[in-house]
Write a protein that binds this DNA or RNA. Structure first.
Length: 579
DNA sequence: GCCGTTTTCGGCCCGACTGTTTTCAGTCG
């Protein structure tokens, strides 16, 4: 049982307990544990093997009861507690909680009164007008549930950052034009630059909220208004995305922005610090907990953090992964910036499935201030991408030489490859060919359903080849829905460290692979990280901001990142690897 | 159910909005 499956089990327990009507804090505890397990960068099974229940309890949010349940799940694959719970509350009721505006109380009500267990039964009952007559329900509530079912069918959960961010920027630009608006900022997971985003959270600073609400809810792209009060409104757009806007007076904007940015767990830490200093922290103010009840307002986040005795914490770090402790010790990392990247080590041209020539890509890299560009077209077994044979690789060398002549010292062109790691773990090129190339990437694209051991061994074969410099998009996941290869990441990292092989953060917003938690762990171990755009067109080079955002979420500084090393240091590293 | 630089027990998730109410329960973030 892997981390995700364990997490899903505890999420299910939380949901079933909620429908059952269990005290909220017990439910929150299960959910908290599930959240922690999902981002736990090691295999929980390994942690258990090494440290038993005691080891499990070192995981934040895991106490005696949950540790015991993890042990049972890992050793037997089943959980007595959950089986008993399912006998009381049918498992399918949990899926009903995903319907917007349908919570545990109503799910229970519908089940008790009408025996509704599935989405289909719910839809039929709502269409048949059977819900409206129930206690606490009315015509409008029934319509809301029907609308919720429709919108659920339309949208597919979380939106990749690469779709959400440009769309949100457009919406925010419109709000900036509203009279009286002083400031508009994204908040929530969008501002924290998570790889996928739920709803868009937008914060507006203005004294008068009414014009903002009017402008926000009457946009042509709005499909329906989900709610609209004096300071808060939410909408659903035609594309299925949802957004909510809060309006706060400029004098309180810092407190509000901090609150709305989250994460929830980061905010809990800040509240604890506030309490220790005699304040309670809300989205509106720091309020003295003594009799005076004095409220302190902050126009900027910097001022609020300062009032808590902390330096400002970059939004990408606010996940309660040690950033508050680091801030208290003045030990926050000096996070990587886009400007610090001056090499692109993964790009494609018309030689394989890219859309532009070597020269065009080089010019595009120069425009963006890159000093090094590696041309890394696919290798022949990726036939769908017109991968190169050894013979074509040699022809390409001539093309690259010609481009080098033309470009002079404006940029250093490296002739590389993105070599396929085949399904059986063998590589497309022999060692002589690899040694002849300037830069060698290896990656997976096919046979992604292999069992963990086989998939891992495949990757290890590439990492252990002394000519392979970098593993691109190591898991080959695709956002928002395709999980990557099932890999033993501990084994992958150990091998990469031993062989000095770099691992990639692929900046394409559909990939962002390595994901943040793994990139952080790899970098902490001392594995060099490369941040590449995998550009198939010059415009893709602008994906870099997503890769860097992901790197910042992984606490990376320029020292961790190959592309940010001084040119000489990078070339020396490459040379030492005996290319 | 978890957690602890004031507590091994008593906190922790509170405010905005909606709809069915008639003073409040449910949902959401």
């Amino acid at each position: 049982m892997n981390n995700k499956e364990l997490a899903d089990t505890f999420t299910l327990i939380g949901n079933l307990l909620e429908i059952k009507g269990e005290v909220i804090y017990k439910i929150l505890a299960y959910r908290k544990a599930a959240e922690t397990l999902v981002v736990y960068p090691r295999s929980v099974a390994d942690t258990y093997k090494e440290g038993g229940q005691k080891g499990l309890k070192e995981i934040p949010g895991v106490g005696p009861a949950i540790a015991e349940k993890i042990e049972e799940l890992l050793t037997t694959g089943k959980l007595e507690f959950l089986e008993k719970l399912k006998a009381e509350v049918p498992e399918s009721l949990a899926s009903l909680l995903q319907v917007p505006d349908l919570g545990p109380k109503k799910v229970k009500l519908f089940y008790d009164q009408l025996g509704i267990q599935t989405i289909e039964q719910l839809k039929a009952a709502a269409e048949g007008g059977q819900l409206a007559g129930l206690p606490g329900m009315g015509k409008k509530s029934e319509e809301k549930i029907l609308a919720g079912l429709e919108s659920m069918a339309r949208r597919s959960g979380r939106t990749p950052l690469g779709d959400a961010l440009p769309f949100a920027e457009e919406q925010m630009a419109l709000l900036r034009k509203v009279s009286g608006v002083k400031r508009v900022e994204a908040a929530g997971s969008l501002r924290r630059r998570r790889d996928t985003v739920g709803d868009l959270d937008i914060l507006v600073a203005a004294e008068d909220s009414e014009p903002v609400m009017e402008a926000f809810t009457s946009q042509p792209l709005v499909a329906r208004v989900l709610g609209r009060g004096p300071t808060k409104a939410s909408v659903e757009y035609n594309n299925g995305m949802r957004a909510q806007v809060w309006v706060h007076p400029p004098a309180k904007f810092g407190t509000a922005l901090q609150y709305a940015t989250g994460s929830k767990d980061h905010n809990v830490r800040l509240r604890e610090i506030a309490l220790a200093r005699g304040f309670s922290l809300s989205e509106h103010a720091l309020t003295r907990t003594d009799d005076s009840g004095e409220e302190l307002h902050y126009a900027t986040e910097e001022a609020l953090y300062e009032a808590l005795g902390l330096p400002w914490v970059a939004p990408e770090l606010r996940e309660d992964r040690g950033e508050v402790q680091a801030a208290q010790q003045n030990a926050l990392p000096k996070l990587l910036t886009v400007k610090e990247i001056h090499a692109e080590l993964h790009s494609h041209t018309t030689w394989s499935d890219g859309k532009q020539t070597v020269l065009e890509m080089a010019e595009a890299a120069i425009v963006r201030g890159r000093k090094i560009l590696a041309i890394t077209d696919h290798s022949y077994s990726l036939g769908i991408a017109n991968g190169l044979t050894v013979e074509r690789l040699k022809q390409q060398r001539a093309d690259i030489e010609a481009a080098r002549q033309q470009l002079g010292d404006r940029i250093t062109l490296l002739h590389g490859t993105e070599m396929e790691i085949r399904a059986d773990g063998t590589l497309d090129f022999d060692d002589d060919t690899l040694a002849w190339l300037d830069f060698v990437i290896a990656s997976l694209h096919v046979s992604m359903r292999q069992p963990r051991e086989q998939a891992t061994q495949r990757l290890l074969n590439a990492i252990q080849n002394p000519h392979v410099d970098l593993i691109a998009h190591p898991t080959n996941r695709l956002l928002p829905d395709r999980a990557g290869a099932d890999l033993d990441m501990d084994a992958v990292f150990a091998a990469a460290l031993e062989n000095g092989t770099a691992l990639e953060i692929n900046s394409n917003p559909s990939r962002l692979d390595l994901e943040d938690i793994y990139a952080r762990r790899a970098a902490e171990m001392g594995i060099p990280i490369a941040i590449n755009t995998d550009a198939h067109h010059e415009s893709h080079m602008d994906f870099l901001e997503y890769g860097v955002a992901n790197a910042r979420r992984a606490w990376l500084t320029k020292d961790h990142v190959l592309n940010a090393w001084p040119e000489k240091k990078f070339l020396a590293w490459l040379h030492a690897r005996g290319t």
